[in-house]
Each structure stands twice: as C-alpha cells, then as structure tokens.
Design a protein around this nucleic acid. Sequence first.
DNA 1: GCAAAAGTGTTCTCTGTACACCCATGT
DNA 2: ACATGGGTGTACAGAGAACACTTTTGC
Lengths: 225, 225
Amino acid sequence: MSSPSPGARSPAKHRPVNRDVAVLVVIFTVDEGRLHILLVRRSAQPMEGAWSLPGGLLTPSESLDEAAVRKLDDETGLTDVFLEQLYSFCDLDGRGSIAAAYFALVDASSAHLARRRAWLPAWHPVDDLPDLAFDNRRVIDYALQRLRTKLDYSNVAYSVLPAEFTLSQLQRAYEAILVRPLDKRNFRKRMLSLDIIEPIGRTATEGRHRPAQLYAFRERKPIVF
Amino acid sequence: MSSPSPGARSPAKHRPVNRDVAVLVVIFTVDEGRLHILLVRRSAQPMEGAWSLPGGLLTPSESLDEAAVRKLDDETGLTDVFLEQLYSFCDLDGRGSIAAAYFALVDASSAHLARRRAWLPAWHPVDDLPDLAFDNRRVIDYALQRLRTKLDYSNVAYSVLPAEFTLSQLQRAYEAILVRPLDKRNFRKRMLSLDIIEPIGRTATEGRHRPAQLYAFRERKPIVF
DNA sequence: GCAAAAGTGTTCTCTGTACACCCATGT
DNA sequence: ACATGGGTGTACAGAGAACACTTTTGC
C-alpha cells in the first residue's frame, strides 16, 4: 500500500525503513526435449562467479514489472513473451533485501544470449543444475511448481514454441516440462478441443517420414481455461 | 504518519536504490452468511479517514511474513490462522512504494478488533464496500479470486470456522465465499470423501430441530488436494 | 521395401451434478 | 401436530485414461 500506514499509531517518531528491492527472473525454455533454465554468473561479491538467477535492483523510477521486463530483455533480447510475477522473497541473501521473483517462458531459438560478458550466461537442464548462489534453489522449485500447474489450465506453452509448430513439438514441450510421457491421441484430442490452436494449412517435412501439419496458437497471450 | 521525503532515498548512481516496503493484509471472514473484509480508516494524509486495507511499513529487522503476521495480530489478535502471500504491487499510492499483499481467513467470533482508536476498524461485506483509498480495490479483487479458486482445491476453510462446526455451517461458509448455492448431498459427500474433516462424536442443538453432528478439520493447517 | 514419425476412435472409469424424501428435535 | 433444519442414495453426463493400427514420406 501507500507508504503511510493507515493502521499505524505514532506518526511522529516512526522513521521510514527503506530496503533494497530487486527482481529475479526464472527464464525457462525447452530444448532437445529437456526443460532448461537460464543462469548467469554473479559479477560481484559476495559469491562472485557463482551461478545464479538473472536479476538486479530496481532503478529509481521503474516498477517491479518494468524491472522484470528489462532484465528479461537484457538476458534474451525478448520482450513479447510470457512473464508473470511468482512470489516475493525476503532475505534470500541474508541481508534483508526483498526480491520479487518472476518467471518467463521463451523459445530457445528466438533468444539471443549476451555474449560480451566475462562470464557467459547459459542454459542449464533443470534436472542437472549446478550449485547456486544464495537460496536460488527455493525460487526455482517454486517456479517449477507454478509452471507445471499452470501448464494444465492455461495456454502458457505458446511462449515456449515458435509461431508455427507441429503437434508433436507441442507434445514434446509438454512432456519436457511435466517430465512424464503423454498419450499422443489423448493429447491431440485435448489440445484441439481447447480451441487454443489452429492448423495453418501448411505442413513441415522433417526427416524421412510423413510431413506434419503446422499449427499456431490463436492468441499469443496468456489465457486461462 | 509522515511519509518519507523523496530525499530520503539514495539518489547517488553508485548506491543501491531503496524503496518503501509495506505489507497489506486482506482479512476475510464469514458472518451472517456473507463474506466480509476488515477495513480500517487511514490515520494520516493523504486521504486521512478514508477506508483502506490494514497495512504498514516493514520494521528494520522483520521479514515480509513477519510483518504480515504482526499486522494481522494487531488487527484481530489472531496468530494461528491461514495467512498467505498474494502478490506484490508497485505504486499503488502513486509514489513508487512496494506493497506485498497477503490474505488471511479468520473466524469472526475469535477475532478481537481494536477498540481504542479514533477510527474503529470494521467488517464490511465484500459485495457492499465503501470507497477505498488508492488502488485497494484491485488488491481485494485479486484476493477474492485467489480465495475462491483456492477453496476448491485446498482446506483453507478450516480457518474461517471455529474448531468444531456442523456440516451446514461449513456449507454456509462455502456458499458465502462462492456466492452460489451448493447442493447439500453433493457437498457433504465431497467433504467427507476428501478426508479432511472428521466427526468428533458430539452433536449440537441449535433451534427447534434435529441436533447436528459436530465435525473438526483433521489438520488446522493448509493442505492442497 | 523399410524405417520413422504422423495421424486417427472406441471403451471404460471416475467425478461432478441433478434431484426428493424421511428424521429428530423444540415449541 | 407442526415447523425447522439434519441427514441420506441413485441415476446420468462429461472428462480423462488406456489402448493399436494405418498413412505418408525419405532413403
């Protein structure tokens, strides 16, 4: 709410307490049938060089959402993807700062990772993460849970695929995120009945087998069923 | 209460930018078959006297959760109830502060509202709220949505009822929150099959009709189905 | 012609929903 | 005896899960 607290009693001697406020972004992608997260190396003490989630302090004028969008853009060059606030953590670093965590889904082939840094950012499979700075692991676990839940009742997957895709690609993305095989017929039946994707009328040949019908999401923005 | 002057923030480029960080608590209860929210009057400018959600700045040493627990205790005298972080809002007051919103469910008959203030806090039916300070309406709408969703796949209702209750009381609480009548037989069948409540073996007589079996939640803590 | 992925229906089970009557008590 | 809310079962519909074979292409 507002800085002045409606319920507070002693206006005179209360001194406002300000805090560091940062955003963290858990950026997911699916590549080679596996779910990955983007990690960067810390460029400052403490724990310089340790793998961690991308993030940083808010600038004086920006909002939480703006900071998250900026960070995501910095790291991937992408702006028009699924990005949602996750949870606000306190004291992840042991120094009382506030970190508003966000999570995003990106198409690996559209993302352009920064290449001019001493330490290069990199995709890491979620089932094989390195040791992470601070309590970043907690944030990732929370994001994973939310992503998996949300996959079931929303169209978030639109953001992890290129504009045109085959149903098999879509299914592989779902399977990578859920870490569970899905039945092909049931999967297709459900996706089509949800009315969130449509065939675009062209096919794609990929390998020495039958070409697949190409589909696109009707809306490239979040929809909840 | 005095709000921090703009100069209180660290303007220098090489210094981290700190912000006011506050918590807001949307405190729900069910009374007389209607869902209510606890509102207080702002005790400071701007908008002094306007109804708003309880909240306030973090003290120097506390975490977000601790501040939310403290606020809830201040307003209701309750500590062992359902309380969950909702979302962090930015700039609700137009001055760039961060507000971590929480929501809580309390049993109206256990709550003791503050009585020694110039402006008394009060329960307001959610379907008949007064004009509210700032963007508090957005926060309440968000909390309502989350509460209604969560009612369907968790035992949050444990926190809005006394320790012992009848199935009819439980059903009335659900109906008040969802604003929709529920079928008695289906409701009882479902509640019992979820295995989250159990009969305590006693009955309660209330009015000139058949006494009702009393039940209790097996766990008085959050469970997700 | 063969390897490889695309594409396609039916059956069963389970969950949610609709619906109406008798029971125990106080007055 | 009657008014009031407590308590109970069954039938139907829709959703999700299990399951196997034919088609189209590149080589």
